[in-house]
Amino acid sequence: MSTREKIITVSNLYKKFGSFTANDDLTFDVYKGEIFGFLGANGAGKTTAIKILCGLSKPTSGKATIAGFDVYTQTEAIKNSIGYMSQKFSLYEDLTVAENIRFFGGIYGMTRKDIKIKTQLLLDKLGLQDSAKKLIKDLPLGWRQKLAFSIAIVHDPKIVFLDEPTGGVDPITRRQFWNQIYEAASEGVTVFVTTHYMDEAEYCDRVSIMVDGRIAALDTPQKLKETFGADSMNDVFIKLARGDNK
């Protein structure tokens, strides 16, 4: 990271559902061009936090800004500044490659002219010119995934949210995908990754681990491993989530 411009700022954020505290005093920043891993066990409060960061839910108290926009009052501006991709849901299988680009470009509020230009750029970059009229379901899994990521950033968002982006794909395709993520990050896109796959966490610049609604640890994978005396992020996670080190 050459610059340390903050893209996401969160301070003392709480989200309560009745007497249950889903997010308990979250404070962290994410920088421009950073690959930030957001981990936690099932039920630790990740989804609640991400909904707030995407402008889909309001916090109970505390402050947060996304790309400079306030999560209480500027949720529409937030939605225009972010992209989203998940392994489970990404593209429409019964639409062609070009139709998917046009559809998502439209959703993200791009003009027809911009969509046309971007479609060409994107197809050239991925080497998919001959496949523009192919249905998504006829593309190999690896290609679908690369396309899904490209479409998630087609509108040049400041931040892209990736939900378990490479779960279940073969190791070579997975690495091609990480190359793509590194490239986007080096061009200044902030990448926010949530995952159950601890080896995906190893690719992140910094990783936060949520336990029971709080951020229990936040650092580079290297530092976390040193701090917890662990060989892998998997071990770090197990120690934290099981409370072995308390």
Binding site: G40, A41, H196, M198, I238, A241
Partner: peptide, 9 residues
């Protein structure tokens, strides 16, 4: 698949 690291262990 899809289960957190602690439950997997």
């Amino acid at each position: 698949t899809g289960v957190d690291a602690v439950s997997r262990k």
